[in-house]
Design a protein around this nucleic acid. Structure first.
Lengths: 111, 111
DNA sequence: ACGTATATGTAGAACTGCTAGGTGTGCTTT
DNA sequence: AAAGCACACCTAGCAGTTCTACATATACGT
């Protein structure tokens, strides 16, 4: 029973990560788990997508990282939204909605 | 009054082009016009995105091209959906809906 | 004669996400 | 004790898509 591979639309990952971090400080590995959970196993975020994205978001000043002990006692890098990150999330959500609206206009066009 | 640049999500362009061609045979330049029209000027498809995409879709056997005279009397390359292209459009639309549903699940999550 | 709208095309850059590999810790099972 | 697995982080390099910028050519209006 081969599971279909679901590819993210390039450009949405940042928004999804920002949204999940906005729910409260969380470390990378757990972000992937929550994304999978919330999306009912639809999104299965790969580590090779996740970690570079986190570094990208940190470089841009949208996330701030801090080492702490996780639930399991291991050290993990916890990410939190910066004020800039919160604004960026708003911008990206607004843009996402406009985009999906515009796509919907085209998909619903009958000739 | 600088217009905001709207970037397409990578991966959606093929679907949008297939959908517009599905409305009836049409040439490339007119595809860009219709997309802009239908999306109420939201999408402004660049020629550097359009033509490579059309060639890609033709290479994959989803579109078939034919030179004909356009409304203005000039020669233009009219594209039509192949049966394979029609199936592909269905697949992409279904995938798009699943994807946006999954994104919506994440965006609507309150902690 | 000139500019504009129509119509097609390419080269190269930029960005993103994926594959595939690697490191190390701690818990559970054999 | 060792073996395996889940946790937790990371990087290099590839593949794919869209954009910018440029190039070409025709028809029409002024």
């Amino acid at each position: 029973m081969a599971e279909e591979k679901v590819e993210l639309l390039k450009g949405t990952l940042d928004m999804l990560i920002l949204k999940i971090v906005a729910l409260g400080p969380i470390h990378g590995y757990a972000i992937a788990q929550r994304m999978q959970q919330i999306s009912r196993d639809f999104f299965q975020l790969q580590q090779g997508s996740l970690y570079p994205a986190l570094h990208r978001l940190e470089d841009r000043g949208w996330l701030k990282a801090e080492w702490k002990a996780s639930d399991t006692g291991r050290e993990a890098k916890f990410y939190a939204l910066t004020p800039k990150g919160r604004k960026q999330l708003e911008v990206e959500v607004k843009n996402w909605e406009q985009l999906t609206d515009a796509v919907a206009l085209i998909l619903r066009t009958a000739d």
